[in-house]
Simulated assay, not measured.
Amino acid sequence: MDRRGCGGRPKTSELEQREEHILRVAGETFLHFGFEGTTMDAVAEAARISKRTLYARYVDKTALFNAILRDLINRWLIPLDQFQSEQGELKETLLALARYLTTFALTPQSINVNRMIISEAQRRPEFGRLVDEVGRRPAIHAIATILRGRRAELRQINLDTAAEQFMSLAVDRNLRLAYLGIRVNAEQIETWVRASVELFLAGVMRQNPVVAERVGESNSAET
Score class of each variant (00 low, 15 high):
Thr12Ala: 09
Gly27Leu: 02
Leu69Thr: 06
Leu72Tyr: 02
Ala42Arg: 05
Leu64Val: 03
Ala67Arg: 10
Phe35Leu: 06
Thr12Gly: 03
Asp60Leu: 03
Asp71Glu: 12
Glu36Ala: 09
Arg75Phe: 02
Thr62Leu: 09
Glu89Phe: 08
Phe30Pro: 00
Phe83Val: 07
Gln87Asn: 04
Ala63Pro: 08
Phe83Met: 08
Glu14Ser: 15
Phe30Thr: 01
Arg57Thr: 01
Arg70Lys: 07
Asp81Ala: 14
Gly37Ser: 04
Arg75Ser: 11
Glu86Arg: 15
Ala56Tyr: 13
Lys11Ile: 08
Tyr100Met: 11
Arg99Lys: 14
Leu64His: 02
Ala105Met: 14
Met40Arg: 01
Ile73Ser: 10
Arg99His: 15
Ser50Ala: 07
Leu77Val: 05
Glu14Pro: 09
Leu31Lys: 13
Thr39Leu: 02
Leu72His: 10
Gln82Met: 12
Leu94Pro: 14
Ala63Asp: 14
Arg48Ile: 04
Val25Gly: 12
Tyr100Cys: 12
Phe83Ile: 11
Arg52His: 04
Arg57Tyr: 13
Ala67Leu: 10
Gln82Asn: 09
Phe83Tyr: 15
Asp41Thr: 04
Arg99Gln: 15
Arg48Tyr: 05
Gly34Lys: 03
Ser50Trp: 14
Pro10Asn: 00
Lys91Gly: 02
Val59Phe: 04
Asp41Pro: 00
Leu54Pro: 00
Thr103Val: 13
Leu101Thr: 13
Glu20His: 11
Leu54Lys: 01
Leu97Gly: 13
Ser50Gln: 09
Glu36Asp: 11
Gly27Ser: 14
Glu89Ile: 05
Gly27Trp: 00
Thr53Ala: 15
Leu31Val: 06
Asp71Gln: 14
Asp41Cys: 05
Thr62Tyr: 04
Asp60Tyr: 09
Asp60Thr: 09
Ser85Lys: 14
Gln17Tyr: 11
Gln87Ile: 13
Phe33Gly: 00
Arg9Glu: 11
Ala26Glu: 03
Phe65Lys: 00
Lys61Tyr: 09
Ala63Gln: 10
Gln17Glu: 14
Glu16Gly: 05
Phe83Gly: 01
Ile68Tyr: 03
Ala63Cys: 07
Leu97Asp: 06
Gln82Asp: 04
Asp41Met: 10
Glu86Thr: 07
Glu14Trp: 08
His32Met: 05
Thr29Glu: 07
Phe35Arg: 06
Ala105Gln: 15
Thr12Cys: 02
Ala46Arg: 09
Ala44His: 05
Glu89Ala: 13
Ala96Trp: 01
His32Asn: 08
Thr29Gln: 02
Ser13Leu: 10
Thr107Ile: 04
Trp76Val: 04
Ile68Gly: 03
Phe104Met: 11
Asn74Ile: 05
Gly88His: 05
Leu106Asn: 12
Glu14Val: 15
Leu80Ser: 08
Phe65Leu: 13
Val25Phe: 11
Val25Pro: 09
Thr53Tyr: 13
Phe30Ser: 00
Leu54Trp: 09
Ala56Asn: 15
Ile73Met: 07
Asp60Asn: 15
Leu80Gly: 04
Gln84Tyr: 07
Leu15Gln: 15
Leu97Val: 06
Phe83Ser: 10
Arg24Glu: 14
Thr103Cys: 08
Thr102Gly: 00
Thr29Met: 10
Ile73Thr: 07
Ala44Tyr: 08
Phe35Ser: 05
Leu72Val: 08
Phe65Glu: 02
Asp71Tyr: 07
Gly34Pro: 03
Asn66Tyr: 13
Leu64Asp: 06
Phe35Thr: 02
Gly27Cys: 01
